[in-house]
Structure formats: C-alpha cells, structure tokens
Amino acid sequence: MVGTFIAGYGAEMLRRTLQHISMVGLALVLAASIGVSLGVAISGHDRVARWVVGAASVLFTVPSLALFALLVVALAPIRQGTGRVPAVTALTLYSILPIVRNTWVALRQVDPSTVQAAQGMGMTPSQVMLRVKLPLALPLIMAGVRNAAVMGVGMATIAALIGGGGLGYFIFEGIARANRSMVIAGTMMITLLGLAVNGGLLLAEEAMTPGKRRRGEHGG
C-alpha cells in the first residue's frame, strides 16, 4: 500500500524532500551566521549575554505553529504572508537559540591559560578569537547546529500548513484526505530525514573533536 504510494509519487516525494532540506538548510546557514556572530559578540559581556540567551530561550518555548502563524500575520503587509519566507524566518529564529547559547558557553569554557598563552605570543584579540577560541569551541558549536538542524526538520513539517511546502504536505494532506499510505510515507520520510541529519551531524561533530577521534582510532 505504502509501496504503491511511493512508486506512484516517487518524483513528488523527491521534490518535497529537497524542498524540505533546502528550507532547513537555508534557515540553518542564516541561523549559524547570526548565532555564532551573536555568540562571539556577547562573549565577555556576561550580563548582556544572559539577557540575550534568556530572551532567545523564551522565544524558543513559543510553539512553532504559533510563531509560523504570527509571521503570516506580520509579513502579510509586504505580501510575503504565506510560502517560504515566513517558514524560513521562523526556522531561523528558532535555530538561533541553540547556536548562540552553545557558542557563548563554549567560548566561556576555553581555558584562560590557553588564551593567555596566545596573547603572550603576540596575537591580537581577533587572532585569539579566530585562531584559538573558536577552533576550541567548535565541537560544542557544532552540537548546537545539530540541535537546530534536527529541530528544524521537525518544524519545517509544519511549514506545509502555511504553504511553505516540504514533507509536511504528505502528512497534513494525507490526514485531510484520510489517506493512510500518504501519511505513512510522509511520516517515514520525515523520520528518516530527522535521524539522518542527527546521525550525519553527530559524525561531523565527532570528527571535529580531536580527543574523541583519536580514541576512536585506537579502538576505544
């Protein structure tokens, strides 16, 4: 049953999957650029940082459908009320929190003596950030990116409700039409995508953590 659905809708599924991925991917790139820059900017200003991270956490608890709907209303005056713009905007807003928080935490955790060593060798503040702090913070930042990506895959499903396309189409359309095969096919794809994104980025994360990688090579 599901098999026949997939056979019949193969091309459609591929198109929706790519749509889904591009939506999440675009939001992730935007969120990573904003989140990391923001994290760097607020590092060293603890009080500001707490406010920023706190505000982002509050935004994070707002249900995704609510934020999508809110953006539909907010962007309507500029004729972008439905479609990809509100979807990508909402996904970006959500994805910023895990990235900015992890960036900030990771930069705080860098050993002060390492920073002093770098300063002692004559690095400028921006060199210390780019050559020492950020590389050391990278694994944790990547963990934030992974969280954002996994969450984004789930939330992008909801984008179908506001005309954003993606794999949510099969689920919501399937429920509306009471077409079980369509729902199952959509659910399968979205689950696989979620697990694949998580697994793939986890591997990337481990590859960027020097200690972990070495342990792995020696067979644990």
Partner: peptide, 16 residues
C-alpha cells in the same frame, strides 16, 4: 536518537 524524530511524525503515525 528518538529525540530527532519530529513530533508531528508521531501524531501522524498515531492517526493511522
């Protein structure tokens, strides 16, 4: 790993 499964997928599956 299961936390990577979108919540909507679980609702959809239960709907089935």
């Amino acid at each position: 790993a299961a936390q990577a499964v979108p919540s909507v997928a679980v609702i959809a599956l239960m709907f089935v």
